[in-house]
Amino acid sequence: MSARRLAADQPASFEMTPETQAKLDRIIAKYPQGKQASAVISALWLAQKQNDYWLPRAAIEKVAETLGMPYIRVMEVATFYTMFNLEPVGRYFIQMCGTTPCLLAGSDGIKAYLEQRVGPQRKVTADGNFSWLEVECLGACCNAPMVQINDDYYEDLTVENFGKLLDDLAAGRPVRVGSQTGRMTSEPDGGLTTLTTFYGADGKSGPQSLKK
């Protein structure tokens, strides 16, 4: 993880949309009077989602003013957590897990593919579609290797299905969130081995519509 600092090019201003403001007001209301600063992470997150997944300086200042905090306190939070992007990201922001279980399951291949296809980390492609970042464990180890693209997890990746996933995203075709091999959630790779009488004799659980 390299030093996290504000981006060089900054928009002049940031205003919360009424929807963001309404969501934030609901969150702030959860905290007692005088403890509004507790909502800082949620507020930054909402601001980031509104602003194409990255936090400009103006948004940090806006959050500080909204919560009555000194600017530096909000800056500390924004620069601490890797979930806050301080520079523009691609339309599809790929966070690739590089921690041990994913690495054992082949994330180094995914990483090499990303480097070849998207380029170096934290650099947005010319068409604005993709940028990527290697992150620590995202907690989906049983479906390793995996990436998070914007708000969703894409799991059981191979270089082939990952390449197709990126092609589909770039072309605007619908994609399947979750496992890319058709596995249900985090069930065993080769189908159910227990409770098969309850959950489908075909070894797959869940509604028939999801079964391939």
Binding site: M1, A3, R4, P70, Y71, I72, M75, E76, T79, F80
Partner: peptide, 17 residues
């Protein structure tokens, strides 16, 4: 509240806003 610590881990730096 002028001073703060930005970044984390070995990238932590003490500065004003």
């Amino acid at each position: 509240s002028d001073m703060g610590a930005i970044g984390r881990g070995e990238d932590m730096e003490i500065t004003t806003y």
